[in-house]
Design a protein around this nucleic acid. Structure first.
Length: 931
DNA sequence: CACACCTTTGTTTTT
DNA sequence: CAAAGGTGTG
């Protein structure tokens, strides 16, 4: 066990009272939580499934889980059942809870921000959008398309906050009900409704759906014994209700956070939750982790000064203390003012180049190394508004950088060219326009003309050819066009990086089509194409404004340029915070139609937090400052307009802190220098079963699907296989409770679970018949096995090495008549995404089962639900399990190093791959020329 | 100092 | 199209 401070030890050891951990920046919070959870797992009678730990992002969850597993493996040797410990977001927890215990919700899918807006606009009347009045004279009612984002904000505030509905006008209240009904009618959750549904189950079980509510509550009562909430300061009122609901039967609660780092008020975080925690729970213990192990004395002093500017009533009393080995030297912290943004950018670049090679010690007792590009971050209040001059200067000097949120997907020449195809098809552009855009797209190999795709476009635009709407598939047309033009990573002119970049843009567009088509799949074809083009022109550019270049899992050695928000939880040896201008940081309030023109601000407690206050901005500045380990450069230059002429109050305040210099020479030769050596970061790799399957099958296929983001076309029968799986899941779950169904339940099961939103009426009938037949057949062939069900939809997990985890669910685990344990995977032909189960995958299941129970399964089998489908059954062999572990490990490594190569030669995998046209020619090349 | 008028701007982002 | 900073007037 590493050494802990007395406060850390106290937090780790307090397992029997509600605990509040106030964790200052850099206080080793994650380590303390992880160690505390490890202690919980040592308690007699405590199983991993008794623990639920919440984080705000999937990334933070992966890191926390990995840390816990490392500690547990070290201290307990190995432990079984860890897959059943919940570490994740509250959203995923709620979704999981509902889709495990409430059969009616098994078929629900989740709307993203994009599909949610598409859905609301397509149903603008039925969702109540156009009936919402506003306080603005110019806008008597919300309007379709224009106000759908505002509408989603209103809907989430009304369910996520403690809104006083008596102050909200009738039409808006009606809209909430209409929108909720519309979601349910279409089997959708949005991010709010999944939490809301779960909370309502926990709060008023009597109104629930009988047995489901009972089972859900039973699970919470029996299994949830320890709840840990990280980043508690960012919890919103609905999430606070969820926490209350989860601990209502006496579970131990531990909340961890720092009120000074509340930076998401504008999306509902309620600081009051953490400020008044002590008064709301009985007998709480409170521990403050005040020691900062990250930053030098100077940074800590500056941070403390910034935080002390928050008024006493809005802050928990605490004083961050310097405890790091980092030294402060005069000149490490500079607040510099410049005459123009260009001067400021140049000065930043000078410093960055000066810092490269400076000796730096990451941890006490380790060897120093030379700083490199990736040790530097430049943090802006608004990257979009202010980062331009710096990016230009970095570009000029050839300093490598990563920036998010500056480039817009729809401004790129690649996407302009692609959009023109659809404009041509709907008569909004001449073919000459298309040719002009493709000529400058940088996508076509020499000698290839977009004219090669014209026949496809003309045929596609003939909307009189067939009556089935599903045949007018946007995604298929798109992939066919790319194929006809021979566009692949290696045919795009330029160096390999250029090829990757282009494919990444094109993959994003595939996602754009998927989003649109998920909502508009079954519209009259002509209308669908027209809506698509209109949407591409007016809506989509605003939906997909960040074309953040995801570099995959490999981390390049480059300067990070990002917003302060995105820097939360991170640290760098050197941090720059430029453009500290009045009206920018702190940001002035903004105009325009807002939520409080629809909902009166008196109906929402602390409504101001949604608009943003100066204190909120101060907390954001506090986060920025405390990211730095040693070097911190604050700077100001007047902006282009009248509004941004003066320096930020924060800037002036910083200059009054003794550790801060207003000018200092470059370090030059005055400090020790070493060869630049970027810090080694181990990116977390968490793979789902289906991702792993693709990675095993063909690494390049994985790259096309998951890194570039290409999606296969929607199949009209989509949902059939899922429906069968869900029906079987209900059968097995009820069998586990002693409720063994027979064939008379088939109609009801199909009715409840089969959801095929893209099927035309005739196909829907066919699918229903097929589903009934499949379930009846299952009852005949396997009905007798039902009582021998051991687990249904069992969550498993394989932790292969630090940072590499595979997550997944096993359809069914049952005891055979021979008393052996069998792992079963169901298969159905109609299952849209050809989920072929390979032997490898089955053996991964077997490994997961082993980690879960500590015992080995005897056989793995594939059970085909089709009438004449083939089943397989295979003995689990120990050596195979070891081999599979090695293969997962290799797969994870290839991801981290970004080595995702094509299979060397054409093979059966290629023949079955539905994205192969993006990889190589369909025909195997018989004569390969080798230079 | 109070007020009217004119000008400029439009953030931050996860699930 | 709304809001608030800046500027000018009394």
């Amino acid at each position: 066990m590493p050494t802990y401070t007395p406060a850390q030890q106290e937090a780790i050891a307090c397992l029997d009272a509600p605990l509040q951990i106030i964790a200052c920046a850099g206080s080793g919070k994650t380590q303390v939580i992880s160690q505390r959870i490890s202690e919980i797992l040592k308690l007699p009678g405590v199983e991993p499934r008794h623990v639920a730990a919440f984080t705000f992002t999937e990334k933070a969850a992966a890191e926390l889980k990995d840390r816990i597993l490392s500690i547990v493996e070290q201290e307990h040797g190995s432990a079984t059942g860890l897959a059943e410990m919940y570490v994740g977001t509250m959203h995923a927890f709620c979704l999981n809870l509902l889709q495990t215990y409430v059969p009616e919700t098994f078929k629900y899918s989740v709307l993203t921000e994009q599909t949610q807006r598409l859905f609301i606009d397509r149903n603008s009347r039925r969702s109540g959008l156009t009936e919402c009045p506003t306080l603005s004279a110019g806008t008597p009612h919300l309007r379709r398309f224009i106000h759908s984002r505002l509408y989603t904000q209103v809907m989430s505030i009304l369910t996520e906050d403690e809104t006083d509905l008596s102050l909200v006008c009738e039409e808006v209240k009606a809209a909430v009900g209409k929108y909720r009904d519309l979601l349910e009618a279409n089997a959708y959750f949005d991010y709010t409704s999944m939490v809301d549904r779960a909370v309502r189950f926990l709060e008023s079980p009597d109104e629930g759906i009988g047995t489901a509510a009972h089972a859900l509550l039973q699970h919470v009562r029996d299994d949830v014994k320890f709840v840990v909430v990280d980043e508690y300061q960012d919890v919103n009122p609905l999430q606070e209700r969820l926490i209350r609901g989860l601990v209502q039967f006496g579970a131990n609660l531990c909340v961890v956070g720092d009120d000074d780092q509340t930076i998401y008020q504008w999306r509902g975080s309620e600081v009051a939750n953490i400020l008044t925690f002590a008064g709301r729970y009985e007998g709480i213990r409170s521990v403050t982790l005040a020691h900062n192990f990250r930053s030098s004395q100077g940074i800590v002093a500056l941070g403390r000064r910034v935080a002390e500017g928050i008024s006493v009533g809005n802050r928990l009393p605490k004083s961050m203390e310097h405890a790091s080995h980092q030294t402060w030297d005069r000149g490490d912290i500079i607040a510099g003012a410049y005459l123009t943004p260009e001067d400021e950018a140049a000065a930043i670049c000078e410093r960055i180049q000066d810092l490269r090679g400076v000796a730096f010690t990451d941890r006490p007792g380790t060897e120093p190394r030379g700083l490199s590009w990736s040790d530097v971050a430049v943090l802006y209040r608004s990257v979009a508004a202010d980062a331009g001059p710096l990016v230009a200067e970095m570009e000029r000097r050839g300093i490598p950088y990563i920036v998010k949120g500056l480039t817009r997907l729809f401004d790129s020449r690649e996407i302009s060219a692609v959009v023109s195809l659809f404009r041509y098809m709907t008569g909004h552009a001449a073919f000459a326009d298309v040719e002009a855009l493709w000529a400058v797209s940088g996508l076509l190999a020499p000698g290839v003309s977009v004219a090669a795709a014209k026949p496809l476009l003309d045929a596609g635009a003939d909307f009189g050819r067939g009556e089935r709407w599903g045949t007018y598939n946007l995604q298929r047309l798109y992939l066919d066009v790319l194929d006809a033009l021979g566009i692949r990573e290696d045919t795009v002119p330029g160096d390999p990086v250029r090829g990757e970049l282009a494919m990444y843009q094109l993959g994003k567009f595939s996602q754009v089509i998927s989003d649109f088509e998920a909502i508009y799949f079954s519209s009259n074809p002509k209308d669908k194409y027209d809506s698509f083009v209109g949407w591409l022109e007016y809506q989509a550019p605003g939906y997909y404004d960040e074309a953040d270049l995801d570099t995959g899992y490999a981390t390049p050695d480059a300067v990070t340029i990002s917003t302060v928000h995105q820097a939360k939880g991170m640290q760098w040896p050197a941090v720059f915070v430029p453009c500290l201008r009045a009206n920018r940081f702190p940001s002035k309030r903004h105009g325009g139609l807002g939520v409080f023109h629809v909902v009166p601000d008196t109906a929402v407690p602390h409504a101001d937090r949604y608009r943003g206050t100066v204190e909120d901005e101060r907390r954001l500045f506090y986060v920025a400052v405390t990211r730095a380990q040693k070097f911190l450069y604050l700077s100001f230059s007047p902006g282009t307009s009248r509004l941004f002429q003066k320096a930020s109050a924060f800037f002036g305040e910083a200059t009054t802190v003794p550790f801060v210099s207003t000018a200092a020479p470059l370090l030059g030769a005055s400090v020790a220098r070493l060869e630049p050596h970027p810090r080694v970061e181990v990116p977390q790799v968490t793979l789902s079963f289906s991702e792993l399957k693709y990675l095993f099958e063909c690494p390049y296929q994985f790259k096309i699907r998951f890194l570039y983001g290409f999606n296969p076309p929607i199949h009209e029968a989509l949902g059939y296989g899922k429906g069968l799986h869900d029906a079987l899941a209900e059968m097995h779950k009820r069998a586990l409770d002693g409720d063994v169904l027979d064939a008379t339940a088939v109609d009801e099961l199909v009715q409840r679970h089969l959801h095929t939103p893209y099927a035309y009426p005739l196909l829907r009938e066919q699918l229903e018949r097929a589903a009934r037949a499949a379930l009846k057949r299952y009852f005949v062939l396997h009905g007798d096995d039902l009582p021998r069900t051991l687990h249904s939809e069992k969550q498993i997990q394989v932790h292969v090495a630090p940072g590499i985890t595979v997550d997944g669910r096993i359809d069914l685990i049952k005891r055979l008549e021979t008393d052996e344990v069998s792992i079963v995977d169901f298969k159905s032909t109609y299952r849209a995404q050809a989920e072929d189960v390979t032997r490898d995958q089955l053996h991964v299941y077997a490994v997961g089962y082993q980690e879960l129970t500590g015992t080995s399964a005897d056989v793995v089998e594939v059970l085909n639900l089709d009438e004449d489908g083939k089943n397989t059954r295979e003995t689990v062999v120990g050596q195979l399990l070891i081999d599979v572990r090695d293969r997962i490990h290799d797969a994870g490594e290839s991801l981290r190093t970004n080595k995702l190569d094509r299979l060397p030669t054409w093979c059966s995998t290629c023949a079955a791959c539905d994205v192969r046209s993006l990889c190589r020619s369909a025909e195997p090349v018989s004569q390969v020329l080798t230079p």
